[in-house]
Computed example of a mutant assay.
Amino acid sequence: MTDTFREAMRLMRTRDPQRREDGFHQLLPHAADFVDELLGEFAQEQDQGLRRWLLELIGATRAPAALPTLSEQLHSPDESIRHWAAVGLTRLDTPEARTVLWRARANGTIT
């Protein structure tokens, strides 16, 4: 894990809303460089707000490695998590991602 990633995650975990935003925006343009780290953080994170941001960052990576996590989160009870999973799958734009989205829409999991 690089210092850049660690610092951004530290900021995203502070209580200061501006510093949290700063951490998110530090990672956003470099999300693809940290896909494995983001997936690991998402898997361990308990804070729902931070999980939403992490999933948004994961979707921004457009990495095939994100497919299982994004697909799984389409079934989350949290509507915002489902939204960011769908956005991430749309950005991924692979045949597998499109199939997962089609099934979720057909089942009424997402709109």
Rank of each mutant, 00 (worst) to 15 (best):
P29W: 01
A32S: 14
V87A: 09
H75Y: 11
T14W: 06
A106M: 14
M9Q: 06
L92C: 01
L27P: 00
E72W: 05
A63N: 13
A43K: 13
H30E: 12
E79W: 05
R19M: 14
M9L: 13
D36P: 04
D22V: 15
P68L: 03
D36S: 12
H83N: 12
E56S: 12
L11C: 09
A86R: 01
R105N: 08
D78M: 00
V87M: 06
G23L: 05
E41Q: 12
T109K: 13
L57V: 07
M12E: 06
A85W: 04
R103S: 10
R6P: 00
L89P: 00
I58Q: 07
D33V: 08
L50R: 13
R19D: 11
A85I: 04
A66G: 02
P68M: 02
E79T: 12
F24N: 07
H25E: 15
T111A: 10
L11P: 02
P29A: 03
L27K: 04
F34H: 07
A106C: 12
F34R: 00
R52Y: 00
D16R: 10
D47T: 11
I81W: 08
T61W: 02
D78S: 00
I58K: 09
R20Y: 08
I110F: 04
R19Q: 15
I58H: 08
A104P: 04
L11Q: 14
T14S: 14
L28G: 06
E37K: 10
R51M: 01
N107M: 12
H75I: 03
R13Y: 00
H30L: 15
S80P: 11
L89T: 05
D22I: 14
E41V: 05
T4R: 14
R20S: 03
G23F: 01
Q48S: 15
D93F: 03
L54E: 01
S80C: 05
F34C: 03
T4H: 15
E72G: 06
Q48D: 14
A104S: 06
H25R: 10
Q26F: 12
G23H: 06
